[in-house]
Design a protein around this nucleic acid. Structure first.
Lengths: 207, 207
DNA sequence: ATAAATATTGACCGGGTGGTCAAATTAAGA
DNA sequence: TCTTAATTTGACCACCCGGTCAATATTTAT
């Protein structure tokens, strides 16, 4: 409601101008994080006056919230899409596909990914104290569903501690995506994903 | 060599003054990270003049490097100690003890831990581009040794892909410690560690 | 064509930054 | 004790920040 009101002026802008502003903002926040990001650089890079930017978005914080919302939307879309597309796959195949789709997402949206990762790994951003638990809950709930599917289909150990299994998968998945984001293309993603999932499946103990 | 020269003036200070300065600096960097940390707040909190601080440490960057060095020393000590103390334990017991020792370390050194985590999860700090790979190599080498021990003793699968096993353990360990740092004492560390290690050991697949 | 409403601008504000340095204070040597 | 050397100080500098707002330019309505 109120946000709509605040953004009315921005939404009335020509698509070209909107895009220039969004592009400049995404660039700035992804490269510098919230605190170090500079509104001056954003207006320079977007080619508008400072007063205009503060007219469209009243504060630096609310501009960031808006941009973060975009990033989150994109991430959610990717999660939903890959979950639907792999409904018929067995658990570990599904997990492999989810990981590889994540790598592809990062290649397609490196700057939005960066903003997402910053939210996950720093407390730099406004409301991060409230947002971080929500993000954890999001990815936790996502993995919980997929693990439960695997148990129901007798592909996973029915005595698994789901909470801890989620924790392991979430930790490794996030770290893997972070590495793939930092060192683009220098690793063989498919081989890595297969190896990691094989260990998840069989464990590490002597057989 | 050169660093020794630069720090001569600082090292000549009374222990009390040194401690006040170190304490103030550790507080500032752990709470705010490098970029947002304020030299003005450090001098206020340490009760010295601004010029003095810049006399002891020429720049903000070199003060940070010094503080970071302290944090790293402490972390290395902890790693070395727990490795030696668990030499006789079987792999998974050893892993449990390492994780719990990490939790204890964080409780004993919350501010140094915070500085260490910031280095691990942000690119906020000077030289972080070079330091981060070194840190990865450090923890990677550490885990590699311990895994190799486990294989040699026929406790771990001899066909394990060591590199990927290290990756999994490192990801989960770091994330676990980070969580334990953020939510002090609200989780049952011992129970978590046991559950996580059981999954590492046996895998997730239906049995 | 004119008036009213709207959108855009950038100079300006108070405040904080890392860093400097001449002057004042303290310590050391003769 | 007097002089010299070393240390400590904080006012000051140039710069950048997020944010404001009167003045200007542009659209819209009549």
């Amino acid at each position: 409601m109120k946000e709509q009101q605040l953004l009315k002026s921005f939404n009335r802008l020509s698509p070209d101008k909107q895009n220039r502003i969004l592009d400049a903002s995404i660039k700035e926040f992804s490269e510098h994080g919230y605190q170090i990001a500079s509104m001056n650089r954003v207006v320079d890079s977007a080619g508008i006056a400072k007063g205009s930017l503060f007219n469209y978005f009243n504060t630096k914080s609310s501009l960031f919230i808006y941009i973060y919302g975009l990033a989150l939307e994109n991430v959610k879309d990717y999660l939903r899409t890959v979950k639907d597309k792999t409904k018929e796959d067995s658990f570990f195949i599904r997990l492999e596909k989810i990981m590889l789709a994540g790598v592809a997402f990062i290649q397609d949206h490196p700057r939005l990914s960066r903003i997402y990762f910053r939210m996950l790994y720093t407390t730099d951003s406004p409301h991060s104290k409230e947002i971080l638990p929500e993000l954890r809950k999001l990815s936790g709930g996502y993995l919980t569903e997929i693990i439960q599917d695997g148990i129901n289909r007798n592909e996973l150990d029915k005595n698994l501690d789901i909470e801890k299994t989620v924790f392991i998968l979430d930790s490794v998945l996030n770290r893997f995506l972070k590495v793939s984001h930092e060192s683009q293309n220098t690793i063989n993603a498919k081989h890595w994903v297969e190896s990691l999932c094989r260990i998840f499946k069989n464990g590490m103990a002597y057989k």
